[in-house]
Amino acid sequence: MKIRWRLSPGRKPFKSLYLHIILWFLGRSIQAAVHIDPKIRQEFFNLPDDMTFSLGVEPQGPRMVIRKSTQTGVSYLGRASRKTPADLEIKIHDIEGAMLLLTFRESTAISASHGRISIVGNVAHGCTIVRILDQLEILLLPKCIAKRAVKRYSTPDRIGAMRTRLYVRTLIGY
């Protein structure tokens, strides 16, 4: 019988890189979308001030943190340290689950019902964040992809203009 004593954890460099990029992009686009989409603005209005929330892969994977504050509005804080937990954390349990969710092959609802994500913190705020993410996906993605990511797709008014502004603001970080 052969015995091998240890096996160091492997790497998934491409998936990891993709997730870093997409989370960076989502973080910055949430920050920008507040200025562009009234629905997202309204949802943020309902959240308490100085609240932070994170979306990331557990336990040590890529993630993004967003803060809503009265002074600076909604701001993207990058990866931020895990030592101080966010007020609300949307945790994706593994990297494959994150790929399914963030390549928009699986909607947030399906991921939640398959137990791939869990929400730690105030569930009502979690529901608001999920609505924000759904609306963001509608704004960012072409209809055929966004339809897989949300349960009900409704085309917002002047989506073309909004989408262009959103991409420009996201990329220049404004």
Binding site: A109, A112, V123, A124, G126, C127, R131, R152
Partner: peptide, 13 residues
Amino acid sequence: ALGDGSHFYNPEQ
């Protein structure tokens, strides 16, 4: 009700 977590699992939005 919009803040109740069970609505994720409903088939319709």
